[in-house]
Nucleic acid binder design. Structure first.
Lengths: 359, 359
DNA sequence: ATGAAAGCGCTAACAA
DNA sequence: TTGTTAGCGCTTTCAT
C-alpha cells in the first residue's frame, strides 16, 4: 500500500541499503545519489514505517504514561510536560488510564510492554488506595523495563520521583497555626487513600508539635455537606481548615457561604494542588503547588538516565510542595459568627444544584 | 532479549505456526497442545511484540489524538473518553500536543502516519487562529488515513464532528436577553480565533434579531482588567456579559468583585465550557456545556466507521452546546450601583497577585 | 561507494 | 492437526 524504501530503490535502480543509508543520514553515499534519493522519497510521499524500524532496531520510540486517573486535572500539566520533553528527544507518548483500577493498571502496563516502550512513567493506582506497591511493578522491574514511579508510593529498588505528602499536610497546618488558628480540621479526607492519609498525618504531627492548645477538631471525610453544616453550627467549631485538594476547598467554601460565613473572615481554608483556577476564585485559594512541571522534568530525566544505564543503582527523588498563601487564609476571627442553617436558604441551593451532574 | 514465539515453539518441539495459532485463538490445534503452549507462554513470561504484529498485519492498534493545546482543561474529558472507548476496542492512544503551532501540528500528523495509526482524532490548531483548513489535512486525506476533525473548522470532503460555535453565542445572548438584559458585552474575545469569532457572531446575531433596543455594547478583548474597570465605571455599562469561556468568566467575576459589584445582582455572566469547577464557584457559573464526552463518543464512532469503510462518503456531524443556567445570571438590576475603582483597594489585589505565575 | 542478503518477531498460505 | 515457508519494511553486516 504505502511507499517503502524498496519502491524508492527500484525507481532509482539502486539498492535498499543505499536508500536506508540516505534516509538515516549515514555516510558512504555519493552526494549526487543522496540528493536523488531524497528527491524521490519526497516525490513519492515516503513515510518511514516505525514498526519495521522498531522491530529491527529492537527498540521503540515510545514513552508510556500510565495514570491512575486521567480525569483528574492535576495530571494535565504533567502530561503536557512529558509530551513536550519526549518530543524534544524524538519520542511519542502512549497514554493509558487506569481509572483507579488495579487490574486495569496491570493491563495497561502489559500493553505498554507489548508495544516495547522505551520507558514508562506511572502514577500508580496504589496511592489512591491503601495497597502497597503491587506485584506488577516488580514484574516490570524483573523484566528490566525502564520505568519511574510517580506520586507518593515508592518501593525499595524501584526508581521513583515522589512528593512529600506528609510534609504538605504539615506545611498547611503550620501556615494556619502561624496565623493564630488553634482549632483545625481536615476536609475531604476520604479514607483508604495513602496520599490522603499521609497528608492527614502531616497535619496531626504539625499540630501536635506546635502544642499551645492546638487541636485537630475533626478530620472525618465522608460526612458531606450536612455533616459539615452540623460542625459549623457549633460555637467551638474549627477556624482553620486544611482541604485535601483545591476542588474540595472550593466545595467547602460554598458550604461556608451558603451558611452566611466566609473565608478568611470566619474560617481560613488552605488546600493542595494549585490548579489553574485557584488564583481566580474569590477568595483566592491558599494552596500548595504540586510543581507538576518540575516533577515531570525530574521524572523524564530519571527515566532517560535509567534507559541509558539499566544497571545503575535505584534512584529516588523527593519533591516538596510549595506554599502559595492567598486570600482564603488569614488570622482567626475575633468573634464566632453564627452559621445560618443552609436548609433555610433552600431556594438558592436548589437552583445551584439543578441541571448538572458535575455539581 | 525478550521471549518470542520461536522460544516457545523450540521449548515444546513444535512450530511457530502452532504457537501463533494458539496465541491468537485460531482453530486447528489439539486441546492438549494448546494448553501446553499457553502454559509455556505464561511460564516464560511471553509478551507478544506488537511492532512485529503490526508489520505483518499491515495495521496497527493505535488511535492517534492530536490536540491544539494539551494544556487546555477543556480537552481532558474528551481525552479520557477516547482512551476509554479505544481500550474497549483494543486500541492504544498515541497523544501529541500541537501547542498552537501549525508546523508542530504538521509534524505530529506526520509522526502519527509513521506509526501507521489505524485512525486519528484531531483538534486542529486552525480553530485558534484564522487559518482555514491547512494543507496537511488534505495530504492526510489523499493518503487515505482515516481521521476525524474536531472543533469547529470543517472542510468539504473531510470527516468532522463539529460544535456549533455560533449557536452557543446566540444561546447565551438569548439567555441574557430573555432575562431582561438589553445591554450586553463580550469578554475575552481574543482576536484571530475562529472559535471566538463565531461565538461573537452568534451573540451579535441574536441581539440583532431580538431588536427592542438590545445592543452589544462592547466586545473588545484585549483591554484587560483596567479596560473593563473603565467600562464598568460608566453608568451606561452593560448588564449582561457573555464570557468566551469559563476561565475568562471566573476572571471577570474577580474584576467585578474587586470593584464592589457582584453577579448576578449587578451584572449577569454566562460563559462556555462547563468545566468541573464551574458549578462550585460562587456564584455558580451559568455556562454552556461542551458535551465533550458526547463529542468523543461521536468522534470515535465516526472514526471507526471510516476505518471500516474507507470509501464511504464524507461524514459530518454538528453538535450543539447545552445551556446550564446557574447563579451567575439573573434579571438585570433595578439600579446601577457605582463601581468602586479597584486601584483604591490595591492591598487586596496585590496580595492576590503575589507569588504565583498562573494568576 | 554500492549491493546482496540475513534477520528482527510475527502471520498466513500452502503442504503434508 | 501440524509444519514449512514466504514475506511485512527496515537496518546492517559483509562482499564487491
Amino acid at each position: 500500500m504505502a511507499v517503502t524504501i524498496r519502491d524508492i530503490a527500484d525507481l532509482l535502480g539502486t539498492s535498499v541499503a543505499t536508500v536506508s543509508r540516505v534516509l538515516n543520514d549515514k555516510p558512504g553515499v555519493a552526494p549526487a545519489r543522496r540528493a536523488r534519493v531524497l528527491q524521490v522519497a519526497r516525490d513519492l510521499g515516503y513515510s518511514p514505517n516505525r514498526s519495521a524500524r522498531s522491530l529491527v532496531l529492537q527498540r521503540s520510540q515510545f514513552i508510556g504514561f500510565v495514570v491512575a486517573d486521567l480525569g483528574n486535572p492535576r495530571y494535565i500539566d504533567f502530561l503536557r510536560c512529558v509530551e513536550s520533553i519526549g518530543r524534544e528527544r524524538g519520542y511519542q507518548v502512549l497514554i493509558a488510564d487506569s481509572a483507579h483500577d488495579l487490574e486495569q493498571e496491570r493491563q495497561n502496563l502489559e500493553a505498554m510492554v507489548e508495544h516495547r516502550v522505551a520507558g514508562l512513567l506511572v502514577f500508580p493506582v496504589a496511592e489512591y488506595h491503601r495497597e502497597s506497591t503491587p506485584e506488577h511493578f516488580l514484574d516490570l522491574h524483573a523484566r528490566r523495563i525502564p520505568f519511574v514511579l510517580l506520586g507518593n508510593v515508592g518501593h525499595d529498588g524501584l526508581d521513583a520521583v515522589l512528593a512529600r505528602e506528609e510534609e504538605v499536610g504539615a506545611l498547611l497546618a503550620r501556615h494556619l497555626l502561624d496565623l493564630g488558628h488553634r482549632r483545625l480540621a481536615i476536609v475531604g479526607a476520604s479514607p483508604g487513600s495513602r496520599t490522603v492519609e499521609e497528608r492527614c498525618a502531616g497535619v496531626r504531627k504539625a499540630v501536635h508539635a506546635f502544642g499551645e492548645g492546638a487541636v485537630v477538631v475533626c478530620e472525618d471525610a465522608e460526612m458531606g455537606a450536612d455533616g459539615w453544616r452540623a460542625v459549623l453550627a457549633r460555637s467551638d467549631r474549627p477556624t482553620g481548615m486544611v482541604a485535601i485538594n483545591d476542588e474540595i476547598a472550593l466545595w467547602f467554601l460554598t458550604v461556608l457561604r451558603d451558611g452566611g460565613l466566609s473565608a478568611p473572615d470566619d474560617i481560613s481554608v488552605a488546600s493542595v494542588d494549585n490548579l489553574s483556577w485557584s488564583s481566580n476564585v474569590r477568595p483566592a485559594l491558599t494552596t500548595a503547588d504540586a510543581c507538576m512541571e518540575e516533577r515531570a522534568q525530574r521524572g523524564m530525566e530519571m527515566l532517560f538516565a535509567r534507559m541509558a544505564a539499566p544497571d545503575s543503582p535505584p534512584m529516588r527523588e523527593m519533591l516538596s510542595y510549595r506554599l502559595i498563601p492567598r486570600g482564603s487564609s488569614g488570622p482567626p476571627p475575633a468573634r464566632i459568627r453564627r452559621y445560618a442553617d443552609a436548609s433555610r436558604r433552600s431556594d438558592r441551593r436548589a437552583r445551584a444544584a439543578s441541571g448538572v451532574e458535575t455539581l
